[in-house]
Simulated scan of single mutants.
Amino acid sequence: MCRNIHQLHNFEPEATDDEVHAAALQYVRKVSGSTRPSQANAEAFDRAVRDIAHATRHLLEDLVTTAPPKDREVEAAKARERSAKRYATA
């Protein structure tokens, strides 16, 4: 599950609210051990996602770096290349 959490810091443009929410959702899924909570746990699950997304947004806003921002398309191309090498058939 956590393989879907991608680095969000130091990109231009900055991470969107949807990306932050998706990362928080994946984290809560991993920690809770379920992809969909029962009705009894839905409120706690949703609250955890909101809280973690909120904390993540603050973290991203507060982090400081001297490195130049990364380009999303370039990083996506690198990831596709790594994936192609990893899963290449002989």
Rank of each mutant, 00 (worst) to 15 (best):
H21Y: 12
D46A: 05
A24S: 10
L59G: 05
R80L: 07
H21E: 10
Q39I: 08
A40T: 09
D18Y: 06
R50V: 09
Q39K: 15
E12S: 15
E73V: 02
I52T: 08
V49K: 12
Q26Y: 07
T35A: 00
V74N: 03
D71T: 05
R36P: 01
R3M: 03
P13I: 08
A44K: 11
H58A: 04
A40M: 11
D46M: 04
R80M: 09
T35F: 11
R36V: 10
A79F: 04
E81W: 03
I5C: 06
A40V: 13
D51A: 01
H54L: 01
A40W: 14
Y27M: 09
T16M: 07
L60I: 03
Q39R: 15
K85N: 05
V74L: 13
E12W: 12
E81F: 09
R47S: 11
P13G: 08
A77G: 11
D62K: 12
A88D: 05
P69H: 07
R57M: 11
K30I: 01
A76G: 05
E43I: 00
Y27T: 03
A53E: 03
F11K: 11
V74Q: 13
R3K: 04
R82C: 01
D71E: 04
D18A: 15
R47Q: 15
K30G: 00
R72C: 10
R86C: 02
D46W: 01
H9T: 03
K30W: 09
I5Y: 06
R80T: 00
P69Q: 06
A48Q: 03
L25Y: 02
K30Q: 04
E12C: 08
H54M: 08
V28W: 09
L8I: 12
A24M: 06
S34T: 15
R3T: 02
L59C: 11
T16C: 11
V64T: 11
E81D: 08
A42T: 03
L60D: 02
A44W: 04
V31K: 14
S83H: 07
C2S: 04
D51H: 10
K78E: 05
